[in-house]
Amino acid sequence: MFTKIGQTQEESVRVWFEGCEMTVGKGLSVAAALLGEGITHFRNTPVTAAERGPFCMMGVCFDCLLVIDGQANLQACMVEVSEGMCIERQCGAADPELDPALAATANRGETTP
C-alpha cells in the first residue's frame, strides 16, 4: 500500500480523478500523486483490457498512460500535476467500448518499418 512520508508538501493543488476531487502535492508527477492517494489502476490495455498502473516511473514503459485534460495517451509519470487538472483512466484503444473483435484483429493489419 502506497503512502506519503516526511513533512507534508508545503504547497498543494486540486485535481480531479475520475470525477473525484483530491488535493495533492505541488510539483509531483501525476503518477506519484495518484499512487500517493492509493490509486494503482491507471488504464486498461487495448489488447486484453487488463488493468495496468505505473511500472518504471521514468518514462520508458508507457504503462501509466492516462487521459489528462482530454488528451489521451499521456505518460502520467512525466506530467506534473497542475491546479484544476482533470484526470481520467485510459480505456483500451482510447475507445470506451473495447470491442473484443478489435482485440482479435490487433495482431494483424498494420505495416511496419
Binding site: 487495448p46 484503444a93 482510447a94 475507445d95 478489435l102 484483429t105 490487433a106 493489419g109 498494420e110 505495416t111
Partner: peptide
C-alpha cells in the same frame, strides 16, 4: 486507420 485504431 487500421482496425486496431492506429492511423497511418
Amino acid at each position: 486507420q487500421f482496425a486496431n485504431g492506429t492511423v497511418l
